[in-house]
Amino acid sequence: LEAKFDDSTIFKKIIDSFKDSVTQINFVCSESGIEAQAIDDSRVLLVTVSIPPSCFESYRCDRPTTIGVYLASLAKLLKSANTNSSLTLYVADKPDELLLLFEEPKNQKSMEYKLKLVDITADMLEVDSDMKSDVTVEMSSVEFTKTVRDLTQLSDSFTVSVTKDGIVFSVQGDTAQGKVLLQPREDLADESNNLSISMSKTIDLSFASKYLLDIIKAASISNKIFLKFSDDTPALFEFKMEKGGGVGFYLAPKYDD
């Protein structure tokens, strides 16, 4: 594998977006790019990552390779990333380490790190990324982040309901309750403020607040978030990158007894 990002912060943002959710991950590299999935220790949150060749300045993968890494270690190396530097990932045919080369031609500087790869036994799950959903919402990731931060302070359970009137996020704590209603809008001046809802039926689902606080860490990937909900299935929270691919979080719901 030889894969070069023209801006090293792209890879840093991707890794930082889920490094607190899961401890380790297998990156599966092939001609069609880098794909990964990992489940958190409590098996409630599934992270999926897709980095297609279009995200790279140059991308070459001669034979399919799996790269297992501890995310805490990789995140440490990526602290060196900045918008002036490119980052090339190299893995040899017999992979036992990942080489990261940061280059800042303007500053006549380069940095080289090596990361030991780890053997991770993890099942790949059959996830249909085009899964049909009852409700799809596209909204500002900034707005979503703020709503999650504000409401999750009040309760460890977070409810999402969508009707024709809009999307309602609500919490019911022991001492306080809160509700945020967002209605579809079109901001011609700033398209990232738009909120659109497409739905075939209403939904009303509850999730554990702590996972939503993990998910919003990915908001730096995109100023938009796509939400997909269906009755009694995991919700999908997806951040798509400008050049294709992105990071998705499948969150299993809570159910009422």
Binding site: I39, S42, R43, V44, L45, L46, D123, M124, L125, E126, V127, S157, S206, A208, T233, P234, Y250, A252, P253, K254, Y255, D256, D257
Partner: peptide, 14 residues
């Protein structure tokens, strides 16, 4: 009282 579902309840291993 709410109960937490697991990802494994919904997705099968490839």
């Amino acid at each position: 009282k709410s109960n937490q579902r697991s990802i494994g309840d919904f997705f099968t291993v490839k």
